[in-house]
Design a protein around this nucleic acid. Structure first.
Lengths: 199, 199
DNA sequence: AGCGTTGTTTACATCGGGATATACAAAGCT
DNA sequence: AGCTTTGTATATCCCGATGTAAACAACGCT
């Protein structure tokens, strides 16, 4: 199946077979791996799945990555990097949500992978912890003006980043309709949660 | 570690070692398995983890369950059952949230397992699909009066059950403070999301 | 007291997937 | 043309986890 693209049979009249340079192939593998891992997470995804998704053999993967874990880290690192360079770490202002939407639209599989899988994989949580901890702390800092410290502040500080992310994912699931409208609605939804959080 | 409770050495002065009857042990295994699986999901949790959590040997597990998958299904089935018999399937009224809180407090690990792991495991999604689909449809039915059908209705119908669940889990994380207050806040948070969903 | 149940320990069979090595074929630059 | 790069195919090692088997020990009901 993977072999029929660049077959070793040398059948004439085949497609040009444009091969990739190393860096290019690496990126393509990372794309494919992101898609593959986004379906079922690290443990439940085999290297064969990744190879098939990339349209190459499993052996090639090892010419670019030391191991499965190494590859997964590379996938996660790239997804984190992309996210952070689109959305600042400490943003809680009015353009945070539009930025989040842009990031999710630019790399939907990476977005889902980070928040729906990596965040629940103890072995790799360190990679997403920086993001989640930062957003939780930012939320807490802003909420501290409105809510007395205690369990309900904890609750709100934990819930609001989660709701933001889930709202964005629901937006992806709904087919990414008009981003401006989405940003408006999500912002107001979060306002609603904040208002509810003040007793 | 497991052996020192009911040691085969027969050392005198040991604890009474109260053995369990079959059904009782099965429930205890299910409890332990729920805790173990709730940490990292199906694939990343070994039978040794489950056995250690239950304080028994791995061999005993096979006297109660055919296989790992069989055991996991039993765990998920029980968690689903408990959830459904505490929270009706089609509830969207004012006592739905209190019921959800009661269910989560009664079986926090099962609750987390269902919504944070099982829901993302393709092989077992069928078991949670009935719940998620039902709650999404219920939400959609109620929202249809307020929102014209289209992507934004889809968005809201998907988001609201998610927010409800995540709000409950955040409440668990915050140490389950006053359930009545929690119910009130969560209800108002959801109202906020609904209000935001009507353009 | 005796027998079935519950449990332990040890050893082993099995299997899938990760990881490695080698040989070979075609692409494509120089 | 020739060498390097990129890719395929195949074979194999290795390890951890699932799953099985057998012998033995103690609880607890009758």
């Amino acid at each position: 199946m993977a072999g029929e693209r660049a077959s070793a049979t040398g059948d004439p009249g085949a497609a040009p077979v444009r091969r990739m340079r190393r860096a290019e192939r690496r990126e393509q593998i990372l794309d494919a791996a992101t898609r593959a891992f986004a379906r079922a997470g690290y443990a439940a995804t085999g290297l064969d799945d990744v190879a098939a998704e990339a349209g190459i053999t499993r052996v090639i993967l090892y010419r670019h990555f030391e191991s499965k874990a190494d590859m997964y880290r590379a996938v996660l690192d790239r997804a984190c990097l992309r996210l952070i360079e689109t959305v600042g770490v400490d943003d809680f202002d009015e353009n945070a949500i539009p930025a989040l939407l842009r990031a999710a639209a630019a790399d939907p599989d990476g977005f889902r992978l980070l928040f729906h899988h990596a965040a629940r994989e103890p072995e790799f949580r360190e990679l997403t912890d920086s993001i989640t901890a930062a957003s939780r702390d930012t939320a807490r800092r802003n909420l501290a003006k409105l809510i007395p410290s205690g369990p309900w502040l904890d609750w709100a500080a934990e819930l609001i980043p989660t709701v933001s992310v889930e709202a964005v994912i629901a937006w992806l699931d709904a087919g990414t309709p008009d981003p401006a409208t989405a940003a408006d609605r999500i912002s107001r939804a979060i306002d609603g949660v904040i208002r509810a959080a003040r007793s």
